[in-house]
């Protein structure tokens, strides 16, 4: 079973995303912010990270950089969830090591299609 780590400070978005992914057969780990998400990177195998960009304590860019600095997670695909339309924000996340993004709002089908595309 593939494992996906979700980092988002919104309870409702987190719940929708985890519900969608768990129903599709994924094992889901949850972080309520970047710092909380980092606690899961303790050797456990992770197949994909889905992260929000604006979070308290440690934001999405900081989380992406931290993940990429850990040899075990250097090549894990990272998608960020964003409402940002500004190209520079996307570029910043890509430069930090993100694989791509999913723009909010998205429907569960779109989320699953993108996740499948990245970790198939």
């Amino acid at each position: 079973m593939k494992t996906i780590l979700i980092a988002d400070d919104s309870d409702s978005v987190r719940e929708l995303v985890s519900f969608t992914l768990e129903n599709a057969g994924y094992n889901v780990l949850i972080g309520v912010d970047g710092e909380d998400a980092l606690k899961h990177l303790n050797g456990v195998e992770i197949d994909l990270v889905l992260t929000d960009l604006h979070m308290p304590k440690l934001d999405g860019i900081g989380l992406i950089k931290s993940i990429r600095s850990k040899p075990q997670y250097q090549y894990v695909p990272i998608l960020f969830l964003t409402t940002e339309s500004q190209a520079e924000k996307k570029e910043e996340a890509k430069a930090a090591g993100a694989t791509g993004w999913i723009v909010k709002p998205f429907v569960p089908e779109k989320l699953l299609a993108t996740v499948t595309k990245v970790i198939r």
């Binding site: 400070d9 409702s12 929708l16 604006h54 409402t83 709002p105």
Partner: peptide, 17 residues
């Protein structure tokens, strides 16, 4: 920063639902 972040969260979640 905090005001921006809270508004951003409301914006993102409200669009989702």
């Amino acid at each position: 920063e905090e005001i921006f972040r809270v508004m951003h969260t409301i914006k993102g979640s409200s669009s989702m639902f």
